[in-house]
Design a protein around this nucleic acid. Structure first.
Lengths: 360, 360
DNA sequence: CTGGATCTGGAAAGCGCATTCCCACTGCCT
DNA sequence: AGGCAGTGGGAATGCGCTTTCCAGATCCAG
């Protein structure tokens, strides 16, 4: 028993395929009640399931939305994915997933694959890279996206525009105020802190990381603090752990120096929660305690990590909303008549101080 | 500029569409070298991207694999999704995502949607439900899957077979030894424990939860322990939290009773890590400490939760492998010639005792 | 009653591609 | 030299559906 076709349904109902098509999907023309009933009955007596491929081919639109993330198992992306999924469901579309590890070359491939499947829109999450070695791939990615847009595709990028992409029709950016928020975080932290600050950041050229670092430094400067030293490492838990080991050694050295006295304490800002957790783990493994021996803050406010103790100070980002927003921005009728096509409501974050930086 | 078609490429190369098709995709017939080159050149001068919909329609197969999870933001599913994604990439296929919250009715819809898109195979993760209210939906889900399989689709279910599904061609189950492992966990915990055990489980009828509860009880019995009391709650963090509050009250009451002395302590087994974390949070919120006032163990060994302190005793499940296995089981040439079509290599878990149950 | 306007269902032409025939060649053996 | 298998390319068909375009029916006003 092969899947039954519209034609079979039509024949069983004694009507033409055209009519069957009209009743079985939201066509503008509604056939007469009696005929409609007959068709519908025939349809589910045959267990008819429309062939979405054929439909897509015929009306050249697929009801598909492509989502590109670095790693779906990373809770940051998982949260965004949930939002995307949720919005997709609202629009009765399905999401196609691609993971790229953040490499622009793979992102380009993913875009091409989505284009091949005639995805109606594409949402790209994950930090853009401006590293020199990525410049060519970025250019190709931009070109691929541009072509996709010119063919009527809609794109939303979370965070930064794709490096080198020109703002073409259908290209949206969900801006995340990483810099401002990092600045705000620094300001709050500086209020009750006269020790040193150190930043644990991702590799240079990772835009999200760079923005947060820059913002944090600005915040410190504003509060009259000296700039923080920046440790570069990988943008994940193990990067945080490594940096944590390094810092632990320094802290211990410092403590030994002034005889365990009250030297300048260290406040660590890790540019994302996962790194912050890694760093915390390293400090703990080295016998140091937070917030006693050092304080630490992260960024993102990952849900799964909220039960972590000491509770992590961080910046709450509405990750799920971001995914939703991005998806909605690419929806067919996304507020374009207003003249301002790509006005995505701004994302708001919130500095959230907790025990890891000494809050009660 | 609309996306260019095969025909355009063919015309530009001065050949027939048939020939162009043959060179541009792995056809059995290889056109002559010179012609092939001409076609290829024409293709990328036009930036030709094959229309996967049309290809799919023509050869009735889509290169799509559908993944059904309860919630993609749940780290358990995110880990499985990573495995699926990974295996899909191996097979040069793309994954289509559906989240259902675990409701069989929505799962049925998802299967239908995948069938409509002519997904080559479907992977279903997430506990099956045998609750009375789900029995009808389960039946419909089973019927839908059956139809999908009969039309040549391949299905892999993680954990339990779909309730009521008959073992048809192309239907695979990746068995997870929840019961055995829970038993093993109980055995290990019972070795150094003479206090009471209590189980924090999901709603009755959630097969994964039920299996783990049953296995744990068996393990206890085997070790000569009395059966543990079972608290039913929801299968997520907040369920764990609620149960934790309840248990905290009891523990405090018990402590007050024997004057803070050394009454029978409680060892809590939460049927998954996320619930365990929730319960821990509740105990902590009530001023209790782990493992001092009570010990606790979970199940799954979620990666993101490994830095949690006190480190959670749990059963490690190779989630990512499970996803990979399930996906591979549905691959086109999955070891079917051997007679035993659906032999999926067994999943191995490992009891992992850590600080939350008093290990050093 | 009649003319045009409106509505309804059907026939047919694609959507972009794979694939089955089919035909024109080439080279080879008898 | 004639017939043969073998080869390489093109024409045509169909995958399942949507969507014009058409023709017949229905309706209302004049």
């Amino acid at each position: 028993m092969a899947a039954s076709t519209l034609t079979e349904v039509a024949r069983l109902a004694g009507v033409s395929p055209a009519t069957a098509s009209r009743v079985l999907n939201g066509s503008a023309r509604k056939p007469g009640k009696d005929i409609a009933d007959r068709v519908r009955q025939a349809a589910d007596s045959l267990g008819y399931i429309p062939n979405a491929q054929a439909q897509g081919l015929a009306k050249s639109s697929s009801g598909l939305i492509g989502l590109i993330v670095h790693d779906i198992a990373d809770p940051y992306f998982a949260a965004i994915a949930r939002g995307v999924q949720d919005a997709a469901r609202e629009q009765r579309r399905m999401v196609l997933l691609a993971t790229t590890g953040g490499a622009p070359a793979e992102e380009r491939e993913a875009v091409a694959a989505f284009a091949a499947r005639r995805a109606d829109s594409i949402v790209i999450a994950g930090s853009r890279s401006s590293r020199p070695e990525d410049v060519d791939d970025n250019a190709e990615l931009a070109a691929e996206l541009d072509r996709y847009c010119r063919n009527g595709g809609r794109v939303a990028v979370v965070g930064h525009p794709v490096v080198g992409a020109t703002a073409s029709e259908g290209y949206h950016v969900v801006a995340v105020p990483n810099q401002e928020l990092a600045g705000a975080l620094a300001a709050r932290l500086a209020e009750n802190w006269d020790g040193d600050f150190v930043i644990v950041g991702g590799p240079e050229g990772l835009l999200t990381s760079d923005d947060r670092i820059r913002g944090f430094q600005e915040g410190l400067a504003h509060a009259g603090h000296a700039p923080a030293e920046v440790l570069r490492t990988s943008f994940n838990r193990s990067g945080g752990y490594e940096a944590g080991l390094e810092l632990a050694a320094r802290i211990k050295a410092g403590q030994a120096e002034d005889g365990g006295g009250s030297g300048r304490k260290l406040c660590i800002f890790a540019v994302n929660d996962v790194m912050a957790i890694g760093a915390s783990a390293a400090l703990r493994a080295e016998g140091l305690r937070i917030p006693r021996d050092a304080t630490i803050a992260g960024f993102d406010d990952i849900e799964t990590l909220r039960d972590f103790r000491p509770a992590l100070s961080t910046v709450r980002l509405p990750l799920e909303d971001i995914g939703r927003l991005a998806t909605r921005a690419t929806a067919p009728g996304a507020g374009n008549s207003e003249g301002q096509e790509d006005t995505v409501p701004p994302v708001r974050g919130e500095v959230t101080l907790r025990r890891s930086t000494g809050e009660a």
